[in-house]
Each structure stands twice: as C-alpha cells, then as structure tokens.
Simulated scan of single mutants.
Amino acid sequence: MITFGRRLVSLAAALALTAASVSSGPVSAQDAPFPTRPITLVVPFPAGGPSDALARAVAHGMAEKLGGTVVVENIAGAGGTIGLGKVATAPADGYTLGFGTIGTHIANVALYKTLPYDPLTSFAPIGLAGTAPMLVVVRPGLGVSDLAGLKAHIAKNGAKTTYGSAGVGSIAHFACVILLAAMQQPATHVPYRGIAPAMNDLVGGHIDFMCDQPTTALAQVTSGKVKAVAVLSDDTVPQLPGLETVAKAGYPQVSFRSWSALFAPKGTPPRIVERLNAALRATVAEPDLQAKMQAVGVDLPRGGDLAPAAVSTLIADGIARDVPALKALGASLD
C-alpha cells in the first residue's frame, strides 16, 4: 500500500521532472542568443575601395565584440543597387547586413526610376560607420592648382574634359555631378568598375580629374602622383592643411560629406538591432581604429550620431536636399 507520504514524494519527483523538462526545452526567439553563426556584411562595391576598407575594419571589430564571425561579401554593380537589393530581401534575422552609402541611399533615388529597395523603408538602420570629405584631384600635368583653374580648363576644352568614378551612382560620380552643376560646366563621365582602376588611369594621365575620398586619394596626393585642388567640404583636411575648401572657392552649396552606415533588413527584431548597434559603438570607440581611420581622412561617429534614428534622419534630409538638385540636372540611368 502506498502511503500519503510516499504519494507526496512521488508527486514532488514528477513535478521536478516536469520543471526540468520545461527549463531544458526550446528557448524562445526573444531570448535566443545572437549570433550563433557567421554574419554576412554585404558591401555593394568592388573590393579595395574606400567603402570596402571601412567596412572590413568595422566588420573585424564587430566580430570581436559579438564573439562571432562577420564575413564581408562584395556584391558590386548598378551603383550598389544589386548588393543592397539582396540585403533588402534577406531574412530579417540579423545574419545579413548591408553597407550603405550616400550614393546607394540618396543619389540612386535620382539616378534610377526604380530601385530594388526603398532607402527609407526597406531597411532597419544599425548605425553610422563613418564620414569623410571628398577631394578633387587632377592628373599630373593638367596645369591647374585650384577650382578656378579647373573651371577655366573645362571652359576651354568643354566635353573633351574627362572625369572618372567608381561607377555610375557611386559617391565619386555623385560628388562630381554636383560640382560640375555648380560650376555650370560640362565634362564627360568615364565610369570604372571600382575606384582603384579610375585612380590608376588618373595617375596615368588617361582622364583629367575625379572626386575621391581621402581613404584612397591621400596616398596618391602625398606621393605626388596626382594633385589635389580642393576639398568639397567646409572643413580642411589635416593631412593637406593648405588645400582650398569648396566654400572659399565660391561654391558653398557643394559642401557635403560622404557617409557609410550599416543596415539590416526591415523587420529585424529590435533586440538584435540593439545588439549590433552596441557592437558597432564599441568598435568605432576603439582608439586604434580611430587613429587608423583619421590617418586616411575618415571620421568615426560618436554619441547621438551612432543612433539608428540618426541614420534615418540623414537619409531623409539628404533625399530632400540633393535628389531635386540631381533631377534638375536631368540625372537618370533608365
């Protein structure tokens, strides 16, 4: 006969087994650890360019902070729209991220009638990764030393004057279009598959000028292979203290900075966005990375600039300011 005391023991044991079964069961999605597998960061431009360099530096730091792996995948083409289009349709689980820029999220709105993503609604911003001024650099022997000289050269030679870029819709293309519009001068665009081959042709004297970020242009300028004639910003470049700013040259409306930011597909859980944002914040706060990026003219964000909402504001403001100007120039690709 089973006594009342024995029944209590049996009931307690059963309850203990039930509790153990519950506690060892599947973890809810809300509480699941992240990441548990490699994260892919899609860079929608060729390897070796300024966006790629910053993306790889950020990916390395974030991997350490997350305790996982972040793999950079270059999916170039169509001004970055192909790569970011893939990000926009990827599962919203935090394992596929995109590296967007002022070109992919603002210039492309004017350049393409249709995009495979909406810059404002297709993504969940993670945070700003970095900003940089744009340099106007000319080929050796062009014989100009400032924007006034470049304008005079274009006025004399017209569409025979050529400028290179990393491709249609790239930051380099965007910057030069705005500059030429302000100068009211024509020039022929020569798009390349990346900024490196464009710079090679500038050094070789095959094109006349280009707009480029310090990340890739500074080494060529300081070595004397190309000449910097202006910075498209109100701020001077520490490495080139005597370089004329666009405002001093008489074109304050051209002043802008390129930017890059991390994005996840829309619908990514807030806790994952927060986790990724925390890793990004910790990465860009590292003194070693700050020093490395500052040496090549890139400013890493701080404080409120790192908030996801700040990226959304940056995009909305840029679209409102720059897209009408680009469309007024008749800028279009299709």
Rank of each mutant, 00 (worst) to 15 (best):
D31M: 12
R37C: 09
S21G: 09
S21R: 12
P46E: 10
V27S: 02
L41W: 01
V22Y: 15
P26N: 03
G25F: 14
P46H: 13
A32D: 03
F34C: 01
D52L: 11
S51P: 00
A20M: 11
A32G: 04
S23G: 05
F45W: 08
G49Q: 04
T40F: 10
T40L: 06
A29H: 02
L41R: 00
A32T: 08
I39V: 15
A19P: 10
V27Q: 03
A20S: 12
D52T: 04
P38N: 01
S51I: 08
G48P: 03
R37G: 07
V43Q: 09
P44Q: 02
P50K: 01
D31C: 13
P26F: 00
P26A: 02
A47C: 07
A53I: 08
T40G: 06
Q30T: 09
A53R: 14
A19G: 04
D52M: 11
V43G: 11
V27G: 03
V43T: 13
R37W: 12
L54W: 06
S51F: 05
G48N: 02
A20F: 05
F34E: 00
P35T: 09
P33V: 03
P46Y: 14
A29G: 00
G25P: 06
V22Q: 08
F34N: 02
F34Q: 01
V42Q: 13
S21C: 09
S24D: 09
G49M: 02
F45V: 14
S21T: 12
A32E: 08
Q30C: 03
R37E: 02
A19S: 07
S23H: 10
R37K: 14
L54H: 07
D31K: 13
A20I: 14
P33W: 02
A20K: 10
A47W: 00
A29E: 00
A32V: 04
F34G: 01
D31F: 10
A53W: 12
P44N: 05
T40I: 11
V43A: 06
V22K: 08
G25Y: 15
P26E: 06
P38V: 14
F45A: 15
P38G: 00
T36M: 10
L41C: 10
A19N: 08
A29T: 04
F45S: 15
